[in-house]
Amino acid sequence: MNKAKSVFIVLFLVLINLSLLHVATLSWHSPLGPGWIGVFVLALPNFYLFVWMFMRRRARTSRNLHLLMAANLTGIALVLTDPGMEADPLPLILGNLIFFGSIAYIFWYSNLGERNNAMLNEGEKLPVFELNTPDGESFSSEQFKGAAWLLMFYRGNWCPLCMTQIGEVAARYIDLDRLGVKVALISPQPETKTKELAERFKVPMRFFVDTDFKASKKLKLVHENGVPFGLKWMGHGEDTVLPTVLIINKHGRIVYSDQTSNYRVRPEPEQFLEVARQKLGGAES
């Protein structure tokens, strides 16, 4: 199933880009009929969604993307009511492909499944696992003890929402530090990619590499075939990690756990600060 998702997302992006290009070419030569206008109404908002994510304005969207759904319904209505459909069925074909592709993206591709990893629930002791620094040095999760930490398991540099979320945390690093919370960012991506990312930020967050998915396997966070098809030829693997955020106290006990079931739905940085104020302040003193 995940393999199908990794291929789907690439094909869907190609579809909406080629559809917009074709509509633009047609409009240059003659006015567009209702069917082609419908294809444009379908393709443009879907295209904009991905552009918006890569612009890194926010690290999250609504779960069901209601505005996009409204645009999808409007576009498919124009396609289906086009009186010239019999003479030119291509708008009908493209319109349906984009419509159902968008529905699949919203409700199928984005869904990570039900996640209820008991070992990562609030109140549990953080399991012991091994990581590596970007320079290849070993690091045990036991070394987190003695301080409160925000642990973010992110998919990789290729994931725009992950990069935006890391940027949000970096922007609030001083606030977290004042509350006694250190930040550790963990990914199974290659060490070279993690080094590239670490160099982008000037705040002292710690970056770690989950080499060979040792930690992810121990914590049951492996997302098999979670990387979009083709990115392995750009230095990424095929598997990744399920986006997860944990906050642990100085004793290594989990006081906050976000195991999102939708990769587009992520916690706000203010939640981390509120947890630090409420559960790491008076509770630990």
Rank of each mutant, 00 (worst) to 15 (best):
H66F: 03
E191L: 15
G156F: 07
V169P: 01
F139A: 13
G136L: 12
M55Y: 08
P134C: 11
E224P: 03
L280P: 01
H29F: 14
V41N: 04
D210Y: 09
L221C: 03
R253P: 00
L65P: 04
L15Y: 11
G113M: 14
D239N: 15
L242V: 09
K218T: 15
F208I: 14
V203W: 01
A283W: 02
I254W: 01
E124W: 05
A198E: 13
V203I: 05
L73C: 02
F12A: 06
F201M: 00
F139H: 13
P34Q: 00
T240E: 11
L78N: 06
N17E: 09
C162D: 07
T211P: 01
I103E: 04
E191N: 13
F144A: 12
A147E: 14
S62P: 03
L131M: 13
A87G: 15
N2L: 04
S30F: 00
S27Q: 08
D135S: 14
E284T: 10
A147F: 06
L231C: 08
A87D: 09
E268Q: 10
M234K: 06
V183K: 00
F100E: 06
L80T: 11
G282W: 02
G33P: 08
L151K: 13
L65R: 05
L18I: 11
M1R: 08
Y263L: 10
V23G: 01
K3Y: 04
N116L: 12
V183F: 01
N116M: 10
Y263V: 07
T133V: 10
A215R: 07
L131P: 13
V41Y: 05
D212W: 09
